[in-house]
Amino acid sequence: MKTTLATTPTGQNVRLVEIQAEEKLARRLTALGITPGVELTILQNAGSALVLAVRGSRIALGRPIANDLLVERLWFVVGNLSPIAFCWR
């Protein structure tokens, strides 16, 4: 199922399918390791920006940018998140 990163809930693991942003922004994202095919974990999705875990870094992305990222959800449990994560939401 393809959705945008912006609509992905906290704690979800996704694979990046496509970057639909303009060239300059796309290059900034790819330099940070946000490349098609990479697996991301949404650590926070609330308010005007999101926090991702990607390739060992934590990246904050504005919601408009997250709208430009097409992802598919990966449905398996990840050791990266404890139940506490869901309490905090």
Partner: peptide
């Protein structure tokens, strides 16, 4: 002018 969004590393 394009509104550039937030792209920022959160260092540990």
């Amino acid at each position: 002018q394009e509104q550039s969004g937030l792209v920022m590393e959160l260092p540990p």
